[in-house]
Design a protein around this nucleic acid. Sequence first.
DNA 1: CAAACTAAGTCAGTCTTGTTGACTTTCCAA
DNA 2: TTGGAAAGTCAACAAGACTGACTTAGTTTG
Lengths: 163, 163
Amino acid sequence: MDDRREPSLLFLTDEQLKKGIEAMYFAYRGFTADPDRILEKYGYGRAHHRAIHFIHRSPGTTVNNLLAILGVTKQSLNRVLRTLIEDGLVESRVGKRDKRERNMYLTEKGISLEGELAEAQRARMRKAYRDAGPDAVQGFRQVLEAMMDAEQRRHFNLLKDPE
Amino acid sequence: MDDRREPSLLFLTDEQLKKGIEAMYFAYRGFTADPDRILEKYGYGRAHHRAIHFIHRSPGTTVNNLLAILGVTKQSLNRVLRTLIEDGLVESRVGKRDKRERNMYLTEKGISLEGELAEAQRARMRKAYRDAGPDAVQGFRQVLEAMMDAEQRRHFNLLKDPE
DNA sequence: CAAACTAAGTCAGTCTTGTTGACTTTCCAA
DNA sequence: TTGGAAAGTCAACAAGACTGACTTAGTTTG
């Protein structure tokens, strides 16, 4: 019998897995740091950011669809949407086919905040990609996708892919 | 003039950066899902997990050191530590050199919960690494490290590296 | 030695974001 | 026409973060 193993298996020591876990923890804090600073200026939190992001991403999306993507309760999402509608960042239109549904759209003001948040986050991602080099980006995306729950991966893949 | 650009730069469209951002969001939810389920059984939250993780990682660590790593307030950390000490998962010992300091250690019970949490998280990371392939892992780690704030990266690198 | 500083812990109050449960209104579809 | 689905509301609660003020113990420094 050949005693040698695939390097791809040998490689996965508990210590190295732990470093991956810690990297994920510290990186996520960096990932949210810039938007958090911007949101604070306007008196919003991460929940508002998530709603704004996914409404921008899929204009006209329904409450139910947002609930499925975000994985929170109706009451929790509703509190956030109500604030954004009151503040004039989001517009809720009664559904054309099914009038029970509400289709969500960003207003000019909403688009403007979305842009500010997205650009801050893209800037960090751009820097991380450039620092890590082009080969790293592919691996980064592959591991993240493999880390998702099936349900989340489904939502992720339903979002429009660049070209 | 040559109209062609470096693939490594051409590559960074806003849409592709956005997919990276969304991948980070969905992956982090997967990353925390398993520990969250375990913690719920014991009536603990993510804050308890973080404390347990870093005390396990650096036995004898002080409160001040944990505050720096976790980036929360003393009051917030103290609430969590108090519970863990009361429940017999963490032991707080008066410092040898400086008696103002408290050195934190996991008890048998604490080590046991840490093991359960860590194994769940490692299992997911192991699966993600295997699904993505050995080449991807390097890139994953590089991008994450580049995404951290300098302060967080410092803490990350201070944690003992495998071999 | 006394004063100043530091580490830890505590008390009180606030905020965001999540939860459950009960309920209404609207409206589609069998 | 009636049952059920979608959306929204009200109330109550909890975790986990925050600020600010304060105590106690112990160390360091002038």
